[in-house]
Design a protein around this nucleic acid. Sequence first.
DNA 1: GACATGACGGCAG
DNA 2: CCTGCCGCCATGT
Length: 106
Amino acid sequence: MNNFYEQVYEVVKLIPKGRVTSYGAIASFLGSKGSARLVGWAMNQAHALVDVPAHRVLNRNGLLSGKHHFPTPTAMQQLLEDEGITVVNDQVENFDKVFWSPNELI
DNA sequence: GACATGACGGCAG
DNA sequence: CCTGCCGCCATGT
């Protein structure tokens, strides 16, 4: 229980403000390469943790695929824009620039 | 105990 | 270049 999920939460909590990452990047970083779905499932649990900025985790396309899981569909975009991230059509602009890889931790 | 689904990703056509 | 299918692990029914 405190293995994969806790690792995911820890990584997500370490995402710098104004930066985002992808499910696959986290999964690969944790060793469960290809199991991005697990990260998504972990995010579902993270929904209960206020310390986990799930809004900074997007899919590989930089699309706000999980916006529907927030209190309001616009909450995720609102939070990202509040951090200086430009979101257009539910997609992050300059995704490559704001993208943050867990490997940066090392 | 088995089947179906999900906040994804990669590869093939 | 765009679309579709399969694979991955865990959870819920």
